[in-house]
Design a protein around this nucleic acid. Sequence first.
DNA 1: AATAATGTAACATATAAAGTTACATAAGTA
DNA 2: TACTTATGTAACTTTATATGTTACATTATT
Lengths: 136, 136
Amino acid sequence: MRKDSRLSRVLHVLAHLGASENPMTSSQLARMLCTNPVVVRRTMGLLRDSGYVQTVQGRHGGWSLTRPLSDMTLLEIHKALGDTGLIGLSVTSEHGNCFIEKSVNLALTSVFNEAETLILARFGEISLDKLLQRRD
Amino acid sequence: MRKDSRLSRVLHVLAHLGASENPMTSSQLARMLCTNPVVVRRTMGLLRDSGYVQTVQGRHGGWSLTRPLSDMTLLEIHKALGDTGLIGLSVTSEHGNCFIEKSVNLALTSVFNEAETLILARFGEISLDKLLQRRD
DNA sequence: AATAATGTAACATATAAAGTTACATAAGTA
DNA sequence: TACTTATGTAACTTTATATGTTACATTATT
Ligand code: FES
Ligand code: FES
Protein backbone atom coordinates (compact mmCIF):
# COMPACT_ATOMS: atom_id res chain seq x y z
CA MET A 1 0.00 0.00 0.00
CA ARG A 2 1.10 3.51 -0.59
CA LYS A 3 2.14 5.59 2.35
CA ASP A 4 -0.14 8.29 3.65
CA SER A 5 0.75 11.65 2.14
CA ARG A 6 -2.22 13.61 3.39
CA LEU A 7 -0.34 15.56 6.03
CA SER A 8 2.16 16.88 3.54
CA ARG A 9 -0.58 17.77 1.09
CA VAL A 10 -2.86 19.39 3.61
CA LEU A 11 -0.08 21.59 4.92
CA HIS A 12 0.62 22.74 1.42
CA VAL A 13 -3.04 23.65 1.03
CA LEU A 14 -3.20 25.44 4.37
CA ALA A 15 -0.21 27.53 3.39
CA HIS A 16 -1.96 28.62 0.21
CA LEU A 17 -5.13 29.42 2.13
CA GLY A 18 -3.09 31.48 4.54
CA ALA A 19 -1.68 33.48 1.66
CA SER A 20 -4.99 34.05 -0.08
CA GLU A 21 -7.46 36.88 0.49
CA ASN A 22 -10.42 34.92 -0.84
CA PRO A 23 -11.65 31.38 -0.41
CA MET A 24 -10.06 28.92 -2.77
CA THR A 25 -12.03 26.24 -4.54
CA SER A 26 -11.39 22.53 -4.38
CA SER A 27 -10.51 22.65 -8.07
CA GLN A 28 -7.86 25.27 -7.58
CA LEU A 29 -6.35 23.36 -4.70
CA ALA A 30 -6.55 20.09 -6.58
CA ARG A 31 -4.55 21.60 -9.41
CA MET A 32 -1.82 22.53 -6.95
CA LEU A 33 -1.72 18.99 -5.62
CA CYS A 34 -2.01 17.43 -9.06
CA THR A 35 -5.09 15.57 -8.02
CA ASN A 36 -8.86 15.57 -8.09
CA PRO A 37 -11.20 18.04 -6.32
CA VAL A 38 -12.90 15.17 -4.55
CA VAL A 39 -9.64 14.15 -2.93
CA VAL A 40 -9.28 17.70 -1.66
CA ARG A 41 -12.80 17.72 -0.25
CA ARG A 42 -12.36 14.38 1.39
CA THR A 43 -9.10 15.25 3.09
CA MET A 44 -9.81 18.87 3.90
CA GLY A 45 -13.18 17.80 5.22
CA LEU A 46 -11.40 16.26 8.17
CA LEU A 47 -9.86 19.62 8.99
CA ARG A 48 -13.24 21.25 8.73
CA ASP A 49 -14.66 18.69 11.15
CA SER A 50 -12.05 19.84 13.62
CA GLY A 51 -12.68 23.49 12.95
CA TYR A 52 -9.45 24.58 11.27
CA VAL A 53 -11.04 25.53 7.97
CA GLN A 54 -14.50 26.40 6.79
CA THR A 55 -16.30 26.07 3.50
CA VAL A 56 -18.83 28.17 1.64
CA GLN A 57 -20.92 26.65 -1.08
CA GLY A 58 -22.02 28.22 -4.31
CA ARG A 59 -20.49 30.99 -6.34
CA HIS A 60 -17.39 32.54 -4.84
CA GLY A 61 -17.39 29.78 -2.32
CA GLY A 62 -14.53 27.51 -1.35
CA TRP A 63 -12.14 26.89 1.48
CA SER A 64 -10.72 29.35 3.97
CA LEU A 65 -8.96 29.33 7.33
CA THR A 66 -10.85 29.92 10.55
CA ARG A 67 -7.78 31.32 12.30
CA PRO A 68 -4.25 32.41 11.45
CA LEU A 69 -1.60 29.81 10.71
CA SER A 70 0.26 30.94 13.81
CA ASP A 71 -2.59 29.46 15.84
CA MET A 72 -2.30 25.96 14.40
CA THR A 73 0.37 23.42 15.21
CA LEU A 74 1.54 20.55 13.12
CA LEU A 75 0.34 18.29 15.91
CA GLU A 76 -3.21 19.60 15.73
CA ILE A 77 -3.37 19.07 12.00
CA HIS A 78 -1.93 15.60 12.29
CA LYS A 79 -4.53 14.70 14.88
CA ALA A 80 -7.31 16.16 12.76
CA LEU A 81 -6.31 13.71 10.03
CA GLY A 82 -6.95 10.85 12.40
CA ASP A 83 -3.67 10.51 14.28
CA THR A 84 -2.62 7.94 11.74
CA GLY A 85 0.28 5.63 12.53
CA LEU A 86 3.64 7.33 12.19
CA ILE A 87 5.68 4.16 12.22
CA GLY A 88 6.13 2.25 9.01
CA LEU A 89 6.65 -1.19 10.51
CA SER A 90 4.19 -3.44 12.22
CA VAL A 91 4.56 -6.02 14.87
CA THR A 92 2.80 -9.33 14.42
CA SER A 93 1.63 -11.54 17.19
CA GLU A 94 0.53 -14.92 15.97
CA HIS A 95 1.05 -16.75 19.24
CA GLY A 96 -0.26 -14.39 21.86
CA ASN A 97 1.18 -16.25 24.80
CA CYS A 98 4.68 -17.18 23.76
CA PHE A 99 7.48 -15.61 25.72
CA ILE A 100 9.87 -15.13 22.84
CA GLU A 101 7.36 -13.41 20.65
CA LYS A 102 6.20 -11.19 23.48
CA SER A 103 9.74 -10.13 24.31
CA VAL A 104 10.54 -9.26 20.71
CA ASN A 105 7.39 -7.25 20.30
CA LEU A 106 7.74 -5.48 23.60
CA ALA A 107 11.23 -4.34 22.69
CA LEU A 108 10.18 -3.16 19.25
CA THR A 109 7.06 -1.33 20.34
CA SER A 110 8.96 0.32 23.11
CA VAL A 111 11.43 1.80 20.63
CA PHE A 112 8.63 2.75 18.27
CA ASN A 113 6.64 4.41 21.02
CA GLU A 114 9.63 6.46 22.00
CA ALA A 115 10.05 7.63 18.42
CA GLU A 116 6.37 8.42 18.03
CA THR A 117 6.43 10.41 21.21
CA LEU A 118 9.38 12.35 19.91
CA ILE A 119 7.66 13.12 16.63
CA LEU A 120 4.47 14.22 18.32
CA ALA A 121 6.40 16.43 20.70
CA ARG A 122 8.19 18.11 17.80
CA PHE A 123 4.93 18.47 15.93
CA GLY A 124 3.49 20.22 18.96
CA GLU A 125 6.31 22.76 18.94
CA ILE A 126 5.87 23.73 15.32
CA SER A 127 3.20 26.23 14.40
CA LEU A 128 2.25 26.43 10.77
CA ASP A 129 3.56 29.95 10.30
CA LYS A 130 6.94 28.77 11.57
CA LEU A 131 6.79 25.88 9.17
CA LEU A 132 6.83 28.26 6.25
CA GLN A 133 9.80 30.34 7.23
CA ARG A 134 12.79 29.93 5.03
CA ARG A 135 15.57 27.71 6.33
CA ASP A 136 18.93 26.51 5.17
CA MET B 1 -0.95 -1.55 1.95
CA ARG B 2 -0.05 -3.66 4.88
CA LYS B 3 2.84 -2.53 6.99
CA ASP B 4 6.10 -4.40 6.87
CA SER B 5 6.20 -7.01 9.63
CA ARG B 6 9.35 -8.78 8.56
CA LEU B 7 11.55 -7.40 11.31
CA SER B 8 9.26 -8.63 14.04
CA ARG B 9 8.95 -12.02 12.37
CA VAL B 10 12.63 -12.45 11.67
CA LEU B 11 13.55 -11.65 15.25
CA HIS B 12 11.12 -14.27 16.41
CA VAL B 13 12.80 -16.77 14.12
CA LEU B 14 16.30 -15.81 15.21
CA ALA B 15 15.32 -16.31 18.82
CA HIS B 16 14.16 -19.83 18.04
CA LEU B 17 17.33 -20.58 16.13
CA GLY B 18 19.34 -19.31 19.07
CA ALA B 19 17.52 -21.72 21.35
CA SER B 20 17.86 -24.73 19.07
CA GLU B 21 20.71 -27.22 18.92
CA ASN B 22 19.98 -28.29 15.37
CA PRO B 23 19.08 -26.43 12.21
CA MET B 24 15.40 -25.68 11.86
CA THR B 25 13.56 -26.13 8.60
CA SER B 26 11.59 -23.47 6.78
CA SER B 27 8.46 -25.50 7.45
CA GLN B 28 9.01 -25.55 11.16
CA LEU B 29 9.65 -21.83 11.22
CA ALA B 30 6.70 -21.14 8.97
CA ARG B 31 4.43 -22.93 11.40
CA MET B 32 5.64 -20.64 14.18
CA LEU B 33 4.88 -17.59 12.07
CA CYS B 34 1.60 -18.98 10.79
CA THR B 35 2.77 -18.61 7.24
CA ASN B 36 4.31 -20.43 4.31
CA PRO B 37 7.82 -21.92 4.09
CA VAL B 38 8.50 -19.83 1.00
CA VAL B 39 7.88 -16.66 2.94
CA VAL B 40 10.44 -17.81 5.47
CA ARG B 41 12.99 -18.58 2.77
CA ARG B 42 12.41 -15.28 1.08
CA THR B 43 12.79 -13.20 4.18
CA MET B 44 15.48 -15.20 5.91
CA GLY B 45 17.38 -15.28 2.63
CA LEU B 46 18.14 -11.60 3.16
CA LEU B 47 19.76 -12.40 6.48
CA ARG B 48 21.77 -15.16 4.85
CA ASP B 49 22.96 -12.70 2.20
CA SER B 50 24.34 -10.59 5.03
CA GLY B 51 25.86 -13.55 6.80
CA TYR B 52 23.80 -13.77 9.97
CA VAL B 53 22.38 -17.20 9.23
CA GLN B 54 23.34 -20.12 7.06
CA THR B 55 21.40 -22.87 5.36
CA VAL B 56 22.06 -26.51 4.63
CA GLN B 57 20.12 -28.32 1.99
CA GLY B 58 18.93 -31.88 2.04
CA ARG B 59 18.02 -34.13 4.91
CA HIS B 60 18.58 -32.64 8.35
CA GLY B 61 19.23 -29.35 6.69
CA GLY B 62 17.68 -26.02 7.51
CA TRP B 63 18.53 -22.71 9.06
CA SER B 64 21.04 -21.94 11.78
CA LEU B 65 22.88 -18.96 13.23
CA THR B 66 26.42 -18.14 12.19
CA ARG B 67 27.17 -16.43 15.52
CA PRO B 68 25.57 -15.99 18.92
CA LEU B 69 22.63 -13.66 19.36
CA SER B 70 24.79 -11.49 21.58
CA ASP B 71 26.79 -10.62 18.48
CA MET B 72 23.88 -9.27 16.49
CA THR B 73 22.14 -5.97 17.01
CA LEU B 74 18.64 -5.02 16.05
CA LEU B 75 20.20 -2.43 13.79
CA GLU B 76 22.17 -4.99 11.83
CA ILE B 77 19.10 -7.13 11.28
CA HIS B 78 17.05 -4.14 10.25
CA LYS B 79 19.68 -3.18 7.72
CA ALA B 80 19.91 -6.71 6.40
CA LEU B 81 16.21 -6.49 5.59
CA GLY B 82 16.92 -3.54 3.37
CA ASP B 83 16.81 -0.60 5.73
CA THR B 84 13.18 -0.19 4.87
CA GLY B 85 11.43 3.06 5.70
CA LEU B 86 10.65 3.39 9.36
CA ILE B 87 8.29 6.29 8.94
CA GLY B 88 4.71 5.60 7.99
CA LEU B 89 4.00 8.89 6.22
CA SER B 90 5.28 10.10 2.92
CA VAL B 91 5.98 13.54 1.63
CA THR B 92 4.81 14.42 -1.86
CA SER B 93 6.43 16.91 -4.10
CA GLU B 94 4.36 17.69 -7.13
CA HIS B 95 5.85 21.10 -7.83
CA GLY B 96 9.54 20.66 -7.23
CA ASN B 97 10.36 24.33 -7.27
CA CYS B 98 7.63 25.95 -5.21
CA PHE B 99 8.75 27.63 -2.03
CA ILE B 100 5.73 26.70 0.06
CA GLU B 101 5.87 23.06 -0.83
CA LYS B 102 9.59 22.91 -0.22
CA SER B 103 9.26 24.51 3.20
CA VAL B 104 6.54 22.12 4.27
CA ASN B 105 8.47 19.11 3.13
CA LEU B 106 11.72 20.27 4.63
CA ALA B 107 10.09 20.71 8.02
CA LEU B 108 8.41 17.32 7.87
CA THR B 109 11.41 15.40 6.67
CA SER B 110 13.57 17.06 9.27
CA VAL B 111 11.30 15.79 12.05
CA PHE B 112 11.09 12.38 10.45
CA ASN B 113 14.83 12.15 10.06
CA GLU B 114 15.33 12.98 13.68
CA ALA B 115 12.93 10.21 14.67
CA GLU B 116 14.55 7.73 12.31
CA THR B 117 17.94 8.56 13.70
CA LEU B 118 16.63 7.97 17.18
CA ILE B 119 15.19 4.61 16.25
CA LEU B 120 18.36 3.51 14.51
CA ALA B 121 20.45 4.59 17.46
CA ARG B 122 18.28 2.57 19.84
CA PHE B 123 18.39 -0.38 17.46
CA GLY B 124 22.13 -0.20 17.53
CA GLU B 125 22.19 -0.41 21.32
CA ILE B 126 20.06 -3.53 21.49
CA SER B 127 21.70 -6.89 20.95
CA LEU B 128 19.41 -9.78 20.25
CA ASP B 129 20.20 -11.59 23.45
CA LYS B 130 19.20 -8.48 25.38
CA LEU B 131 16.02 -8.34 23.39
CA LEU B 132 14.95 -11.64 24.82
CA GLN B 133 15.47 -10.88 28.48
CA ARG B 134 12.31 -10.62 30.49
CA ARG B 135 11.10 -7.13 31.30
CA ASP B 136 8.21 -5.53 33.14
C1' DA C 1 16.69 -44.41 -6.29
C1' DA C 2 13.98 -42.27 -2.77
C1' DT C 3 13.42 -38.71 0.42
C1' DA C 4 13.80 -34.27 2.56
C1' DA C 5 15.47 -30.16 2.47
C1' DT C 6 16.44 -25.27 0.14
C1' DG C 7 16.18 -21.75 -4.12
C1' DT C 8 13.50 -19.25 -6.98
C1' DA C 9 10.30 -17.66 -10.44
C1' DA C 10 5.71 -16.76 -11.37
C1' DC C 11 1.34 -15.93 -9.98
C1' DA C 12 -2.58 -14.83 -6.61
C1' DT C 13 -4.59 -12.40 -2.72
C1' DA C 14 -5.31 -8.77 0.71
C1' DT C 15 -5.22 -4.21 2.09
C1' DA C 16 -5.13 0.64 2.04
C1' DA C 17 -4.25 5.03 -0.24
C1' DA C 18 -5.50 7.63 -3.89
C1' DG C 19 -8.20 8.54 -7.94
C1' DT C 20 -12.71 8.79 -10.49
C1' DT C 21 -17.61 9.09 -11.59
C1' DA C 22 -22.10 10.44 -10.64
C1' DC C 23 -25.35 12.96 -8.61
C1' DA C 24 -27.51 15.64 -4.73
C1' DT C 25 -27.46 20.09 -2.39
C1' DA C 26 -26.52 24.93 -1.59
C1' DA C 27 -25.74 29.71 -2.76
C1' DG C 28 -25.07 33.45 -5.60
C1' DT C 29 -26.54 35.81 -10.17
C1' DA C 30 -28.85 37.09 -14.40
C1' DT D 1 -37.27 31.60 -11.63
C1' DA D 2 -33.61 29.46 -14.14
C1' DC D 3 -28.71 29.19 -14.50
C1' DT D 4 -24.27 28.62 -12.88
C1' DT D 5 -20.71 27.45 -9.68
C1' DA D 6 -19.58 25.74 -5.70
C1' DT D 7 -19.42 21.80 -1.95
C1' DG D 8 -20.99 16.89 0.07
C1' DT D 9 -20.88 12.28 -0.43
C1' DA D 10 -21.52 7.51 -1.88
C1' DA D 11 -19.86 4.08 -4.82
C1' DC D 12 -16.59 2.36 -7.61
C1' DT D 13 -11.84 1.84 -9.83
C1' DT D 14 -6.94 2.04 -9.83
C1' DT D 15 -2.44 1.56 -7.94
C1' DA D 16 1.03 0.03 -4.83
C1' DT D 17 2.90 -3.19 -1.78
C1' DA D 18 3.21 -6.87 1.54
C1' DT D 19 2.10 -11.32 1.96
C1' DG D 20 0.64 -15.83 0.44
C1' DT D 21 0.71 -19.80 -2.89
C1' DT D 22 2.06 -23.01 -6.54
C1' DA D 23 5.29 -25.28 -9.21
C1' DC D 24 9.47 -27.05 -10.13
C1' DA D 25 14.68 -27.20 -10.09
C1' DT D 26 18.60 -28.26 -7.17
C1' DT D 27 21.19 -30.33 -3.42
C1' DA D 28 22.31 -33.60 0.19
C1' DT D 29 21.38 -37.60 2.95
C1' DT D 30 19.79 -42.34 3.40
S1 FES E 1 6.11 -20.03 18.43
FE1 FES E 1 5.93 -19.40 20.53
S2 FES E 1 7.61 -18.07 20.83
FE2 FES E 1 7.83 -18.74 18.77
S1 FES F 1 3.74 26.11 -3.62
FE1 FES F 1 1.74 25.32 -3.95
S2 FES F 1 1.63 25.03 -6.10
FE2 FES F 1 3.59 25.91 -5.78
